[in-house]
Write a protein that binds this DNA or RNA. Structure first.
Length: 254
DNA sequence: ATGGCCCGTATGACGGGA
């Protein structure tokens, strides 16, 4: 079973990319972030035609998340029941016995901004909800755009990013707290090439220069991590015409 | 080099992203 995550930065623009990627990478489960579509505009028919069922929750202009699956999708929950939030950033479902939580964690914009305060409060509420969710579902995966680079090796230039948004101590601590619930960063379970990132700025030829951040992650509960045999970042779609600024992350489970 | 690009929006400028 393969599970994956991809921030598509507008599903309207990126639907052809999504279908092309799924054709070459027929994963069992794919979590999407930043669909930027109200539910009435979600491309259900196109996704069904590609062989996937789908659950989604969106809004106009911003945010929006979805879970695509080749298998039945059960017990869908939209948003964190412990956190009142107008922004559509979470969708969870049970697929083949695995609790799949798809999250678009807030960007935060700048350290100490209102959006940063919201990001940290949002992460605290996520932690509280996941603690309960993990007790109920020992096989749980948290996939998504975390907007946090956990370690120096996840940043092209740690000195340049030190203390900045995505790489501040409080954000790193919030991600470490999620790990402390009993989760493992699937990507770091395995030996990886150096300088692997999941996002590159559209500006400054950042992709060509590999000036990126690893901010899209798959955390696996201990029980699920035992089944994990591989985890990779697929840079290919970042090379395509009109790409998303993020690229997919894929984990393989036995 | 404190900017650059991309997306959506009752658009022709701006907020947000990261």
């Amino acid at each position: 079973m393969k599970i994956a995550t991809w921030n598509v930065n507008s599903l309207k623009v990126r639907l052809p990319h999504l279908l092309q990627w799924l054709e070459a990478n027929p994963v069992d489960v794919l979590c999407l972030q930043e669909t930027k579509l109200t539910d009435d505009k979600f491309p259900v028919a196109e996704i069904n035609s590609a062989g996937y069922q789908v659950a989604y929750t969106g809004q106009k202009t911003y945010n929006g998340v979805a879970i695509l699956s080749k298998h039945p999708i059960r017990d869908v929950v939209k948003n964190n029941p412990r956190f009142e939030d107008a922004q559509q950033r979470i969708i969870a479902a049970t697929i083949e016995g695995v609790r799949v939580v798809c999250a678009y964690i807030p960007n935060g914009q700048a350290v100490d901004s209102d959006k940063y305060v919201y990001k940290l409060a949002w992460l605290k509420a996520l932690h509280e909800w996941l603690a309960a969710e993990m007790r109920e579902h020992p096989q749980l995966a948290l996939l998504g755009d975390y907007n946090i680079a956990p370690e120096d090796r996840d940043v092209h230039d740690p000195a340049e990013w030190e203390g900045k948004i995505h790489f501040s101590d409080k954000e790193k601590a919030a991600m470490a707290a999620l790990v402390d619930l009993g989760m493992v960063d699937a990507f770091r379970m395995f030996e990886q090439p150096e300088k692997q990132y999941s996002w590159w700025d559209y500006r400054m030829m950042a992709f060509r220069r590999n000036r990126g951040l690893r901010i899209d992650h798959i955390l696996l509960s201990t029980e699920l991590a035992r089944r994990c045999t591989a985890c990779i970042i697929d840079r290919e779609p970042r090379k395509w015409e009109q790409p998303s600024d993020h690229t997919p992350v894929v984990a393989t489970l036995d």
